[in-house]
Design a protein around this nucleic acid. Structure first.
Lengths: 308, 308
DNA sequence: CCTTGTGCTTCTTTTTTTGCATCACTCTTA
DNA sequence: TAAGAGTGATGCAAAAAAAGAAGCACAAGG
């Protein structure tokens, strides 16, 4: 798209922090790029970058403009997707930012199911904690975000939000594996592995522990659930995870026990998009599929989980 | 703005219905314009216009695209307004579509009040009935719309909605001028002047009459409230208007009487914008001013009008 | 005090766009 | 039925715009 080339160049400069670096990235000479930016600033009526001794940086006006640019590029992509859709071919690309917990089971299954019906649609999956996911939406780097306990809901449209209780994860031979009803204080009596603070489940655990006399004393803090899953098989430790990230029925090495809502608040798994933005056909349909899957998942849990 | 030149040309062609006519409007030759469009269609990946023997017309893909173009142009204008705003100068332009009833008193007073504080802001006021106003918003020809009884709220964001009762308008020497409490059936017993069906107040009257045994038999149907105001001074006829279009306290020739809500439903005066669109600084502030004025107006009425 | 990296400028070359004339076609009208 | 007036498309040469190459001035860091 030629008419948007200058805008993309501006974005590249903003990202590189230097005209010369951006020129190299975009495979043109710095003099050409420099002139385009000067030309744009002139017809725009205001400078976009502040010139520093070591390069350039967006000024406030530039920040406003870059937001416009990203939104326009994304919207043009939406139009092209809709056009492709009405001409018959179900093509498109979906970019989704989602929590780590969804990587092993949920997202692969969902994407496979969607692609079974629409083979022309491709996906980008970005593993992001809740803050990063929101940042991705704001910068139009993702179309959708599916994360636990999002922080700043104001800037986004919430397409769906379902509750997930926190589960304790342990080896089959763990002393607590026999107990059907598990309390958080029982878990904290054993060595435990928790994620860092930016992860949603840790946020819920911190809230819960703050009301208790016991303290959290993790033997390991890891931002990989994969690490946690494997670690609890070495030492008799306890980890924590949402059920959507677990193979609840068919795991032959681990045992999972839900913690009561009275002990640890449920997590809100939330599907969001940038406020007011129109999604491409593929993204909108995929969002619908996610929503209906999560809804029926949530209903099933309610039935089988009388604690809720 | 050079980078949207092609987009503006496309819009011009869509409007003119012919490449040659549009070329003349935009002061270029038809061959140049023709090739720009062909070039755009090629990189866009699909035709935008269908070629007819007498010219061109947007195809469905083109309709999608033109909507994107208009939104992009409007959004760029918003960015420039915000940039102008943060660089100190309070400049800008506000385009508002509004009902005829607001022309004599309300809008002039509001705009004057706003310009007293922000002299750099200019205005375009478009008199539109409710359907036309919505069309203006959709085509990004107006930033705001303030109309009675809008029809399709789905596509718009409602910033505010206040009720206005319907008033009967008559000369001071009209037989009904003495009655404090006026019923609709009394009015219909006298010659009456009503607006055509596309006007909100007529819609309310039609609804009311449909529940009655009496029928509406207007001696004149006029789309100008100005006509109505003057006509009722010639013959002893009755007109109808919302109070916001009347000089309730200081009119020495006419008498106004509110009709009870039980007779005629109140009209909803609604301030709207295009769904999800960000307004320019000037438009957003003016919308805020309108909202607060209308709110206090509505509260005042509630106090003085126990029928509500 | 030199080196390195920056944005910017000038001059020349290359690429893109435009204008003109013309073609092929359709519908209207005499 | 034939002429005329409208349409979009196209080939070619001229004009305009953009890009490339080289170098300048400036500031920071060793």
């Amino acid at each position: 798209m030629k008419h948007i080339q200058t805008l993309l160049l501006i974005e590249a400069v903003a990202k590189a922090g230097s005209i010369r670096k951006a020129a190299e990235d975009m495979h043109i000479t710095s003099s050409a790029l420099n002139r385009r930016i000067q030309g744009f600033e002139e017809e725009f009526g205001a400078p976009i970058f502040e010139r520093l001794p070591r390069g350039v940086r967006l000024n406030p006006a530039g920040e406003l403009l870059i937001q416009h640019i990203r939104s326009q590029v994304a919207d043009l992509e939406r139009v092209r997707s809709q056009v492709a859709d009405l001409s018959g071919l179900r093509r498109g690309h979906v970019r989704i930012a989602c929590s780590q917990a969804l990587q092993p089971y949920f997202m692969p299954a969902q994407i496979a199911a969607y692609r079974a019906e629409h083979p022309g649609v491709s996906f980008s999956v970005h593993v992001r904690d809740r803050d990063e996911a929101e940042e991705d939406l704001r910068a139009f780097k993702s179309d959708l975000a599916l994360v636990f306990e999002p922080a700043h809901l104001g800037d986004f449209d919430v397409l769906l939000s379902v509750e997930q209780s926190v589960y304790a994860v342990m080896a089959r031979d763990h002393p607590l594996a026999g107990k059907q009803k598990l309390r958080l204080r029982d878990c904290l009596g054993y060595p435990h592995v928790v994620p860092p603070q930016r992860i949603g489940i840790r946020y819920l655990l911190d809230l819960a522990v703050a009301r208790m006399s016991q303290k959290m004393e993790p033997i390991a803090e890891a931002d990989s659930f994969e690490f946690m899953r494997h670690y609890v098989q070495h030492e008799r430790a306890i980890g924590f995870q949402f059920p959507i990230g677990l193979n609840l029925e068919n795991d032959d090495r681990l045992v999972f026990r839900a913690l009561a809502k009275t002990d640890v608040a449920h997590g809100n798994l939330t599907l969001m998009q940038m406020k007011g933005r129109s999604l491409s056909v593929a993204s909108a349909r995929f969002a619908n599929q996610l929503a209906s899957t999560l809804n029926s998942l949530s209903n099933k849990q309610d039935l089988s989980d009388p604690q809720t």
